[in-house]
């Protein structure tokens, strides 16, 4: 399966298992979603469980919270993460706080799916990586898969989870892993182990990172599309890096991170999002606080620049193989 099919399969499996699961969003119903993630679901489960919505993100999330309060388990889609901002009040002030402010009387068991990230010439409003906004909000969980296998297992866990989850789907790797070499021929998931996806039910626990490459020289913390760009660069440079795909950003798998950094003595953080107060800053801080005496070099952050996401200069903006290689050389020099 590619990642779209895996995500579609996760919703299919969960809708079949649990009549409380409903799917909603702009163009998700009859049409099956602008990325086809919900294709066939309305035909199979009916219009009262899979439905198109008006174009109002605050409405979509607000309505989903009300449905959750009723006892449903909504899976709202925000068409692009760049368009999640109108729903911020409902997510931050309502979904994230509902359990806390009602002392558990009401919960918001939502899974907000949204394509995110760049590398597709999406320009300013089809490329953003706003995960740092959501990891900052207590009460929300933030999950980002890097393979079809993980996408399905994590999404099932999210839908079953009783807390509100932001599930960001790296759209650059919907159809295949991305090496970071934008001029190379596109790959698909068929030759990647992460593309082997069981058709039935399985789950990947939230809050658990995956060590995707064992290594001794440096720990690289990353997620989403960058897992693959990092893997390619590591392979090309021959550096014995340990690569950790965080998978869940909040709550973070601190144990896996600490174990690795204490072993390697070096830590590099890679994400597409802009640098200043991005999630990398939090990662850097927790590693610095907990691994200070194990660190042999300053923690490196490889990120997008602190600019809006440009259109024509995308590949100068994107934290690709060159930026990662230079940072690796720097961190290993000390």
């Amino acid at each position: 399966m590619n990642m779209i099919q895996a995500i579609n399969s996760a919703m299919d499996v969960m809708m079949d298992r649990d009549p409380a699961v409903v799917v909603m969003g702009e163009d998700v119903g009859y049409f099956g979603g602008v990325f086809r993630a919900t294709a066939g679901l309305q035909e199979k489960y009916g219009k009262t469980r899979v439905f198109d919505t008006p174009i109002t993100e605050c409405g979509i999330i607000g309505v989903a919270i009300g449905m959750g309060a009723y006892g449903l388990r909504p899976v709202p889609e925000i068409q692009f993460a760049d368009y999640i901002y109108p729903a911020l009040d409902q997510l931050v002030s309502e979904a994230a706080r509902l359990r806390y402010r009602s002392a558990g009387e009401f919960i918001a068991p939502l899974t907000v799916r949204s394509p995110f990230g760049g590398g597709i010439f999406g320009g300013q409003t089809h490329s953003q990586s706003p995960e740092g906004i959501f990891t900052h909000v207590s009460g929300l969980k933030t999950v980002i898969p890097a393979t079809p296998y993980d996408a399905k297992g994590l999404l099932i866990s999210c839908i079953e989870d009783n807390d509100p989850v932001i599930f960001f789907e790296p759209k650059r790797i919907y159809n295949g892993p991305f090496s970071g070499h934008y001029d190379a021929p596109a790959r698909n998931w068929s030759n990647h182990p992460g593309g082997e996806v069981p058709t039935g039910y399985y789950r990947i626990p939230l809050g658990k990172a995956a060590v995707t490459r064992q290594g001794a020289a440096v720990t690289i913390l990353t997620y989403g599309t960058m897992v693959h760009v990092v893997a390619q660069t590591v392979e090309e440079t021959g550096i014995d890096a340990e690569i950790i795909d965080l998978r869940t950003l909040m709550p973070l798998d601190i144990d896996t991170i600490l174990e690795s950094v204490k072993k390697t003595g070096r830590c590099m953080i890679v994400h597409e999002a802009t640098r200043t107060q991005g999630f990398g800053a939090e990662l850097s801080a927790v590693v610095q606080e907990r691994c200070f005496y194990h660190l042999e070099a300053p923690i490196e952050r490889v990120t997008g620049f602190d600019t809006p996401y440009p259109h024509s200069l995308e590949w100068a903006y994107f934290p690709g193989p060159v930026r990662i290689r230079l940072a690796l050389e720097k961190i290993l020099k000390d």
Binding site: G62, A64, I65, A69
Partner: peptide
């Protein structure tokens, strides 16, 4: 919108 969502549910 939450009340509307509850009613829709």
């Amino acid at each position: 919108p939450q009340a509307v969502g509850w009613a829709m549910a």
